[in-house]
Amino acid sequence: MESLVLLLVALICAIQAVRSAQLLIAALWLAGVSACIALFLYALGAHAIAVIELSVGAGLVTILMVFAITMVGEDSEPHQPVVPRWMAIALPAAVLILAAGLLLNAGISSSADAAPDESLSAVLWQLRGADVAAQLALIFAGVLGLLALLADDREEPGASSLWVEAESDEPSAQFRVAEKSEVDLEEVGSPQ
């Protein structure tokens, strides 16, 4: 019963997160969704993942969101949506109705009787070690992307950071850069 209430609250928070005009408020509603889901998972008996969702989903992501919002400042949502509003409502509604109808008809057996089998850590680290390995690669790739995004290009003044400036510069600056890289291309040489 309390699970149902939690899910309902999560949904309401989700709708509010999408509807709210202020970014900061929307981020807090999202944190509410995460917290409700974490509690739901806890009530389900999935304790470990509830803790992870609470700390990463409700905690870390919210902190990052708030941090990003304070960096960029509030920016109100424009009134004109990208796609017609009826489509933006109809498409997700169709997905929901289809899936809900399907699930309610399918009659999935409740897993109350299912014995709590292997613990999360045993499954995650031993049986699904390949997932963990792929995750490490995923995190590394994400960090690389973040580094590339946040990198300051100022360390090399030759390559101006705005093309507008580069164009108004005398063209020779561009060519010097090109020639320079030509030269150390010759130095390093092709490895084969």
Partner: peptide, 17 residues
């Protein structure tokens, strides 16, 4: 890349990809 920094990230990402 010409004279720009950051190429090592590009190669690393290509390998990961």
């Amino acid at each position: 890349f010409q004279a720009r920094a950051g190429s090592e990230k590009y190669y690393a990402a290509l390998l990961a990809l």
